[in-house]
Each structure stands twice: as C-alpha cells, then as structure tokens.
Design a protein around this nucleic acid. Structure first.
Lengths: 147, 147
DNA sequence: GGACATTTGTACGTATGTATC
DNA sequence: CGATACATACGTACAAATGTC
C-alpha cells in the first residue's frame, strides 16, 4: 500500500491579502525564472488554470495579464500563452547632446513596430538639438549607446 | 420648427470590429487630448460609464484600463479615475559610451520610485562600461541627456 | 473615532464571437 | 469542417479604500 502520491496542487490562499490572480501569476513567474518554463513553452490555457486552481476563468485570465504586462509571456488568440523568447538586442547609436526618453507606445506604434499585441513593452525615443524626434524603438530589442 | 437639438450621446457601434471598450477609451482619449479633460479632472466612475454607454461595468473598466496603460489617467480605489498631471521632467546626464535601455518596472521598483499604482510607466536604465547599471528612473519624469 | 456613501478591486458564472490548428 | 482557446461582454456579489459628516 503506497501512500497516495499526490503532487500537492499548490493551492491558492483565499484569505490572503494577495488576490488569487496575483498568487497564480507568482507561481508561473517563479517557474519562468527558474527555467522550469522555457522560452516557447506554453502555459496551461485559461480554462485549465481555472480548473487547476479552483478559480473562475476571468481570474485565471487576470493572472496571465499580469505576466503579459511584465513582458514575460505572449498570448495569441486561438493558440495560447507561451513564454517569450527575448529578441536579440540591437544597438542604436545616439549622437552627443541628445535627449532620450521612454514611454508606452500608442496602438498604431505597436502595430508599426510589429510588437506582440499581448505584451507590455515601452518604446525609446531621442532627439538631437532641434531636429525631429527619432523613434519609437521597441525597448525589448533596442539599446541606445551614447557616442 | 427647429429640429430637436439633441446632443447625440456618442454611442457605441456594436457591429464594429472595434470592441466597445476601445471605442469608449477612444472617446475619453480624444477629450484628454483636446483639453476638454484637464489634468486632475475626474472621469466618470465605472458604473456611470457603463450606464452612459449601455455596457457592463467590466467593459467600462476595460476602457479605463486602456487609458491607464497609455499613462493618460490614474485610478485610485475608493476615489476614481482622473487625468494625469504630467510631472516636471528632470534631466539625468549620461556619460559617453553608456548603454541605455528601458523596461517595465517590477512591483518593488514602482513602490520605491513612488509611482502611481494605477498608471503604466516604464523605467529608464543605463550602464557605463562594466559598472553597475544605474537606475531605474521613472520615465514619466526623466530624460537622459548625453554628454 | 465612528457611521455612511461613493467608488474601485476582486471574483464568480455564463454566453457568444473569432482566430488558430 | 471541427476542436481548441482566447477576446469580448453581460450580470451579480461582496470586499476594501476613500472621503465626508
């Protein structure tokens, strides 16, 4: 008689101040950071997460939204959510005497830059003297280097 | 006989491909950009928006989320959502030969920087040579200037 | 300090549309 | 075409923070 081998289904603490969707996000974040979930690996689908942790689908969805906002995962409709492969970074040379800033992109900019709809990624901009601002550059694949 | 002067209550096009929550976000964004809504002005509360446009509160909420993600408004629990007062920008001098990048802050960084919980604001970082990275700097109030 | 109204935060269930495979 | 899975949307309920009296 073996004792039942039950993988303790890491369970949500409903009395915690930390909301369920954040607790679930934390679990997946940990798996991503430890490499248990590799770039390209899919996370369970929303309905499955809901089942697994005994929450509604909206709650599971909120958890995935947190990870998207942190840029850790991308969600594609009809396919699922998977861990991001960090794109190779490209260096952009910025002239001396430039001003550099960052902000969130508009919808149009996101499309123009081919940025994943799912993720939350800022853009970089710069301006030299009185010239027109240069940019936006997607910050998940761009570094600025000063001359 | 004058035609009845009715302020057409800008209504949501339910057959559009553009989802209702984005249409509502567009309306408020326009009001912010034209100055009809000034920094500090409060937007209607979620329940009111829902009523106004004949949508559910979750949909109204999604519209506000879009504006938060664009950094246009801040939402405070128990109070409401209001247009952001853009903080004065501070210039940070970055040495020559530095590498500059941007990303979304972690929760801890947000707190440390005193960033509004409601808004979505990236942070700026830089590194000179092999030194430790400097930052994060809140991107809504920081410009980097190259030497 | 307490009581109260206002307003957002979280969460459930359900339904339907639509993109991907 | 069917199965899978996300996107949008509705309604409801209660918890928690804020502001006011």
């Amino acid at each position: 008689m073996c004792p039942p081998v039950r993988t303790v289904p890491t369970v949500i603490n409903r009395s915690s101040r930390d909301p369920a969707y954040r607790q679930i996000a934390d679990l997946f974040r940990a798996q991503i950071e430890t490499g248990q979930l590799q770039p390209g690996d899919r996370l369970p689908y929303e309905g499955r997460i809901a089942q697994e942790y005994g929450v509604g689908r909206a709650t599971a969805r909120s958890a995935l939204r947190v990870l998207r906002e942190e840029g850790l995962v991308v969600t594609e409709r009809g396919y699922g959510t998977y861990v991001v492969e960090p794109p190779p970074r490209v260096a952009v040379k910025v002239p001396r005497g430039s001003t550099i800033w960052s902000r969130m992109p508009t919808e149009a900019e996101r499309v123009a830059l081919g940025m994943e709809l799912g993720a939350t990624v800022p853009v970089l901009m710069y301006r030299t003297g009185q010239q027109q601002p240069k940019g936006p550059y997607a910050a998940d694949r761009t570094d600025f280097t000063t001359a």
